[in-house]
Design a protein around this nucleic acid. Structure first.
Lengths: 142, 142
DNA sequence: TTTCAATATTTAACATGTTAAGTAGTTTTG
DNA sequence: CAAAACTACTTAACATGTTAAATATTGAAA
């Protein structure tokens, strides 16, 4: 039997993400960063430095995209890029002062939106949803 | 307090979708269609004809992307395109015979994967996840 | 130590996402 | 009825997704 296009898991995940991101996009746009650039900045805000592979993994961005994003963010001095002594292949990325400023500006607005979404969906259901998604993500590792 | 990048809703939705789609992509690639092209074909397989706006809505694809996708699929004769008498602005799209063949080829493999994911995550949790996602999607309409 | 395989990143090429602007056709207003 | 507002779709421009190939470096094997 054919899976309906309405109640299909990939489609629902896509739409749900769309609904949530629609709340965030205006804020990010005001600060001149894309969704992906913001993910990179936020990950580096949590831990710096990180090599490109680790960063790509944590921000869920493919290597070729990351290369381009790094270039753009470095030019705007939001992050910095350095080499690793002992391994000439790797690139180490760190959050820059301007990046930290950006984080401190965007985070409050971002948190407000998270809280709002969480409140509208209900705290319990919100946690439940995250748990189920986590379970789905873990399928990959098996 | 800063939201961790790990347990964040947009990120989890993205990753979960990635895990699921990673199962499908090889099949679609074997048949020479992208994920988005497949969504368009499948929606038209459920109902034809549809005007571009309806199709975009149901396939969760933005109008500019749809324009390009339609062009590609029409050239491959997987779908057909017609005008609406009475409204010169609209474009009506329909599944073509070759498109129906493609659906009949891909669907069994696709269903098998759905079943596998569903089985691995558990039927009940699967339905629960879809319900929660639906609830999140409905936030948009309020 | 030289050669080969593996790793980290980049580049290339093309599809799609995203926002804004453009075009043509249609409906509403005055 | 004519101008204005609206609608459906397309085009444009640039960022990102995606796969494959290229580069440079490192590590392992002969």
């Amino acid at each position: 039997m054919l899976q309906s296009t309405r109640r299909s898991l990939p489609m629902s995940l896509l739409r749900a993400r769309e609904v949530v991101m629609a709340q965030f996009r205006p804020i990010l746009a005001q600060h001149g960063v894309s969704e992906q650039q913001w993910r990179v900045i936020r990950v580096l805000g949590e831990q710096s430095p990180l090599d490109a592979t680790e960063l790509a993994e944590r921000a869920s961005i493919l290597a070729p995209s990351l290369t381009r994003i790094i270039k753009a963010l470095e030019e705007r001095k939001l992050i910095t890029r350095g080499k690793v002594e002992g391994d000439g292949r790797r690139v180490m990325l760190s959050i820059a002062p301007k990046g930290q400023v950006l984080i401190s500006e965007v985070s409050p607005e971002s948190s407000a939106i998270y809280d709002d979404v969480q409140r509208r969906i209900g705290h319990e259901r919100y946690e439940q949803l995250l748990d189920l998604l986590e379970g789905l993500i873990d399928l990959e590792k098996k």
